[in-house]
Computed example of a mutant assay.
Amino acid sequence: MVFTIQNTDVKQKDADRAVVVAITSRAVFESGAGDGDDVYGVGVAFQLLKALQRVNERLLEENPAESLLFDVVLITTDSQQQQQSSNIISSTRHYGLEISRFCFSSEEDFIESLQNNNVQLFLTTDKNEASQASQKGVLSALLDQQVALCPSDQLRVVFCGDAAIQPDTDTMLASRRAAQSFWAQLGEMQRRFSLNDSPLCFVLLTSHGGRESCVGSMLTLHSSGVSVDEAYCLAGAPRGPILSLLQPHFMLEE
């Protein structure tokens, strides 16, 4: 069972142009740890949401008629939070979060909610949910506690260039097509801003191979319209230390 509630506090985005991002409510809110009985505490994805909103604000500052905007959908599969749906909506209003729709579904049917809303990027703290969505061709990224420490004034995205060495199964090809479509939209957003004053920062990271591998991944992104702000070739070194310095909001496989 899947049902959706539209957030009447938020102006709805252009369905033909908006970039739809779905985030699980468990990543955004911590049940029972807020400022009041009907307000949840903030979760690991709170700063990420604020960064997405900042991009939208800057796009509208550049062009008040802009329609290429992030459209955020909150996905709830947790039965306890579903029983307290009014708390989720109250918490969204309390923190001033620009969430367009609230989708409630069972754990078995959450893929349907992603497909019904034409989601282009799914963000979750649950590895199994991310895997299921990817297998259905929905671009997904796994969030961890590090995201909570990220600054909200600039959306920082890391592209991992090592996926190109993986075998091309049908699932991989479907995921790659979804990724390339999303990259193209990010690139179009990026071109709205000058290099020195952008609310978007794109970083390329390759863990394996040498300079040629890094350059090849950079060209792949460039062909999709994405210009990389920073690039790092680790050549087998662990990526944990550099990621802690970069503080990305999420990482996408290239």
Rank of each mutant, 00 (worst) to 15 (best):
S86A: 11
L114T: 07
D71R: 02
S90Q: 06
E66L: 13
S67L: 10
N87S: 09
S85F: 14
V73E: 04
I89V: 08
I89Y: 03
T125L: 09
I89M: 14
G96W: 10
E108R: 09
A141S: 14
S131P: 01
Q132H: 07
S86D: 12
Q135L: 15
S91A: 08
V73A: 03
H94F: 15
K136W: 15
Q84C: 08
S86L: 13
D109E: 06
S113G: 04
E108D: 14
H94A: 12
S134R: 05
E107G: 02
L97K: 00
S134C: 08
T76R: 02
R93H: 12
N116P: 03
S100E: 07
E112R: 12
K127A: 14
Q115L: 13
K127T: 12
L143T: 10
Q80I: 15
A65Y: 03
E108T: 14
N116G: 02
T77G: 09
Q146M: 15
S106V: 06
T92A: 11
T77M: 03
L123E: 14
L97W: 13
N87Q: 12
S79A: 11
S90M: 04
S105N: 07
T76Q: 07
A133Q: 01
S113I: 10
Q81T: 09
N118M: 10
I75V: 08
N118P: 01
Y95D: 01
S91V: 03
Q145R: 07
L69F: 13
L139N: 06
L142A: 11
S131R: 11
E108N: 11
Q145M: 06
L123R: 02
I88L: 14
Q80T: 14
N118G: 09
S100Q: 06
A148Y: 06
F102C: 02
L139T: 14
L121H: 03
S140R: 04
V119A: 00
A133V: 04
I88H: 02
A133H: 01
D109L: 03
Q115A: 11
V73T: 05
F70P: 04
S131E: 09
A65T: 11
D109G: 00
Q135M: 13
N128V: 15
E66K: 02
T124K: 01
Q115I: 15
T125Y: 03
S106L: 06
T124R: 00
S134N: 08
A133I: 11
E66G: 09
Q80E: 14
N128F: 15
L114H: 00
